[in-house]
């Protein structure tokens, strides 16, 4: 990294109160304080947000596509985790 290179940050925006922060994109900044300000200038200039998180991209640990099956496939055969799995007699309410 040359002396004038700034690290990459990921930006998460809460679009309004009551919703979670969602990933909006990334940007470069020398440190967290500037990353937050750059994020405000870049990702909320059309009133897209009421709260911001910035995270150094390097701090994110991501699951690997190679592990996709061991990670995610075992959830596929457990339909009993979903309410539609269960049969309820007609006319029974509030279930």
């Amino acid at each position: 990294m040359s002396s004038d290179t700034w690290p990459l940050w990921e930006v998460f925006v809460r679009s309004r109160r009551g919703l979670s922060h969602t990933h909006a994109g990334s940007l470069h900044a020398p440190d967290a304080e500037m990353a937050l300000r750059n994020a405000r200038d870049l990702y909320t200039r059309r009133m897209e947000g009421v709260s911001l998180w910035v995270v150094p991209s390097a701090a994110i640990t991501a699951s690997s596509p190679d592990e996709k099956d061991p990670f995610f496939e075992s959830a596929a055969d457990k339909p009993y985790r979903h309410p539609t799995f269960y049969e309820i007699p007609e006319g029974v309410k509030h279930l």
Partner: peptide, 8 residues
């Protein structure tokens, strides 16, 4: 000096 600052 940098794109982020253009926006700021």
């Amino acid at each position: 000096p940098v794109l982020e600052e253009e926006v700021a």
